[in-house]
Amino acid sequence: MTTQAIEIRNLWAGYGQEFVLENINIAIKELDFLGLIGPNGGGKTTLLKILLGLIKPMRGEVKIMGLSVSSGRRYISYVPQYVEFDRNFPVRVAEVVKMGRLGKRRLLQPYNAKDKEIVRNALEQVEMWEWRDRPLAELSGGQRQRVYIARALASEPRILLLDEPTASVDSRMSHNIYELLSKLNKDITIVIVSHHLGEISNYIKTIGCINRRLHYYGDKNLQPETLEQIYKCPVDSITCGIARRVIPQNNSRKEVGDRV
């Protein structure tokens, strides 16, 4: 019997009296590459927060590598969608990546040579080693996203969670990032949250459509007709769950603003 990377059973979650997620059941196999798609406000981010232990489910059970969230989350590292980033925050690339090592170094325990080595490895994997001494503020959106991926890798995770990893990046760079993730997927389970199916469909292995409930979970080659059946509304091929009023492509700034 293989351990599941993530196992969610009968999960209900929400804020106050309102449920955002209802009766979610997922079993993510190790080394899977899962794309979780769904409309904004459909509960994707809530699910991420539960996996990260930032909020507690109201009902149901979540296991990470067979453990409870509080002990299993050390195997998870995540890449935020869009850090509410103070452009003037004085910090250099290598320092950001080092933060990935925090879980391994307790209070009063300084970073050591091994940490430096791991930071170097992580930065080389995302091809940002030459930028290690640069202030983060001088980087482009795509470069910054790579730095955040390196920071997540520095935690030596078994599972990598990414929230809209290409939301603030142009299409060439997002292709780059997905290529990188495919490579990483050889050793790490990857879960991507997105409301764009089109660009991730070439890279993911399984797909989950989430809009309050998990409407579909399985092989990624689902037909648009299936999707339309699930959502009972017309869905164009690039989105899952959002009706046609979808924000135009390449207008990522606006999407970011709209999410909140």
Partner: peptide, 23 residues
Amino acid sequence: LLFYKELLAISFDPVFATTRMVP
């Protein structure tokens, strides 16, 4: 000096710091 790495982390990205078990 003693808490520099954590103080930097909670100032820069408290959510990430939380996920790395930083108090």
